[in-house]
Design a protein around this nucleic acid. Structure first.
Lengths: 340, 340
DNA sequence: ATAGTCGCTGTTAACGATACCAAACAGGCG
DNA sequence: CGCCTGTTTGGTATCGTTAACAGCGACTAT
């Protein structure tokens, strides 16, 4: 098997210097139009594939943007990644994706692994990190964006919202619909700081409104539909049930809703249900249930746009620390309608 | 801002040669245990982060496995990616992910872009590619795995199943439950070859069984819940409705189911519904609906395991072309129960 | 004692592209 | 015709690591 051709081979075949071939492969470079076409054609014929490993080393630019998310199998984070990708791909920036499985130690390892690849920027989910992880990010010398939270002490930029406030809004809405005894269904939140923040917001708002409240924890995140079923089963089996159930995610909320249907418990007449995330299912389920749309896609898009302008934007790099606050939307549906 | 340290700096600080530092950072290399510890400690103190761009170039190994999937926002593909990741991460192989948006031209561009990064292997979804894309993959000189289909003429290895056969199985099941007039709800399938295969399987089986059948196409993939609603609305508005509806994905099936609930159409008594994908929702919805579990995670896991053994497995690289056939599981639920 | 083996460390020269600088060339203008 | 400006092209050194090989001391077997 012959070795694959390199630029020097193309150069020889085209009767130009390797430098000219290099220029022919880049948008910005100045090469005669005819020369470029000839070079590209010869490259195609010889089956040349540009080698970015060499380019990366010499130019000290990889075109990578590293991204850490807790889990791929979560429509919210997937949407954020989609937004990032959309904003970045037109600038020749490639996502380098890794997941942390809702675990800050795993995040630290992952971040180190990603930084070895010399990304030009890094996007992390959440604002809680190990000490060493913070240090790594700070010293990396590249733009850092924390998403989904607005951390108290951001490392670099941030695009997110207050999970606690968003949840508090939902509690107020339910209270306005007449709910007086509420349950919060969440997961263990050692690693899921967003889940923990939502729970905090729930408790704070419930206290403030003087609403009776209880908490259910359901094992490690991500909290799925099945867990929602179990939680609702537990709630309904309780001799002294609640008026309203708020779930840490729409998946759990749907599980809860389905459990009600199985038992012929009416929603919202017998019990109200609300979720979090703005998933399609909240709108499609019967009855549709109330949720909070955190605008996952938008979060990614904004983080991506910010990075694109920082990395490829020309001169105005010094806009300092950017804290982008997204406003989650409360989407009210029949599942939390006030009782006639 | 001082420049970040490189191996030579660590070497100087530790009083050893750069080569020894290099060895200290690798598992396999032979370095004195004391020396290694000292080097790693000094590296940590100086905030050194290993630079794989240089390593990649010199060693001609990147540790990348490139993956193309149609869309991240699809639980099935996300599961496959999760399986891949699980199988590969313990071998120091990083996924390099890109999406094609169900478009073979976009796939071609993506594959070229990915190959520039010199991955050690590439996993693509599906068996249909542009001519140039096939050529690129063939000439890349790395293992190629096609997943989710078993192509007629595989480029390299394959891990998948016959979408057509799987769907035919479902048609047979519905026929066995008494359905005699069926509709298939799918998307435009210019790019979605898996969707197209499922439709083919549906038509073939329906013909074979002499079952009346019709097709609904609902715009570009991915087909979502909303499209399922619309399709079911159309079907129910038809003065001459069908017995059973098979959807190209579970999301569409759930949409269809919810439309029935809105209209108080009973499932399965008035109409049967089946989906595809083995999503959680099929099991949780009320009624639970029948689906085909394609074992998405397993597909990724097997592709990953295969690659790990090819790339890191030692000597037995020559096992030739591997065609791994996954057997999808028909999961039968109440939505397609035979009428009493 | 001597050769052979093993474990560890050092030296040199790449990997394949591009930054940087210099040179060749074309065209415009007085 | 010569000078100047701007575009296109070429030569050289280099990015930071590691493959390949050599060297050195310690230990074992004969």
């Amino acid at each position: 098997m012959p070795k694959p051709p390199k630029m020097a081979d193309i150069a020889k075949a085209a009767g130009v210097s390797p430098m000219t071939v290099s220029r022919a492969f880049r948008r910005d470079a100045s090469v005669g139009e005819k020369t470029r076409e000839k070079i590209l054609q010869i490259a195609e014929e010889l089956g040349y594939v540009f080698d970015s490993t060499a380019s990366n080393l010499r130019s000290q630019r990889t075109g990578f943007v590293a991204v850490t998310i807790p889990s791929l199998n979560n429509a919210n984070f997937a949407d954020t990644v989609r937004g990032l990708n959309e904003a970045l791909q037109s600038h020749d920036l490639q996502l380098l994706l890794g997941y942390t499985d809702y675990n800050v130690e795993a995040e630290e390892r992952l971040v180190e692994q990603l930084l070895r690849r010399r990304p030009e920027a890094i996007v992390v989910t959440g604002g809680r990190h190990t000490e060493r992880c913070r240090r790594l990010l700070q010293n990396a010398g590249i733009p850092v964006v924390e998403t989904w939270d607005i951390p108290e002490a951001p490392i670099g930029h941030a695009v997110g919202f207050s999970n606690a406030d968003a949840m508090a809004q939902m509690v107020e809405h339910l209270h306005g619909s007449g709910a007086r005894r509420m349950a919060f269904v969440g997961g263990d939140d050692r690693g899921d700081t967003r889940g923990a923040d939502r729970r905090r917001g729930f408790v704070a708002a419930a206290r403030r409104l003087g609403v009776d409240h209880r908490l259910l924890a359901l094992g490690p995140p991500p909290v799925s539909m099945r867990e929602g079923c179990k939680a609702m089963a537990e709630i309904l089996d309780d001799p002294d049930p609640v008026d309203a159930v708020i779930c840490v995610s729409d998946l759990a909320a749907f599980g809860a809703l389905s459990e009600c249907q199985r038992r012929n418990v009416r929603v919202p007449e017998d019990i109200m249900i609300a979720g979090f995330g703005g998933f399609d299912i909240a709108e499609i389920a019967v009855p549709a249930f109330s949720t909070i749309d955190a605008h996952s896609f938008e979060i990614g898009m904004q983080a991506g746009t910010l990075l694109a302008s920082l990395l490829r934007g020309g001169g105005d790099l010094d806009r300092g620390r950017v804290i982008q606050r997204i406003r989650p939307t409360l989407k009210i549906s029949r599942s939390t309608a006030a009782r006639g």
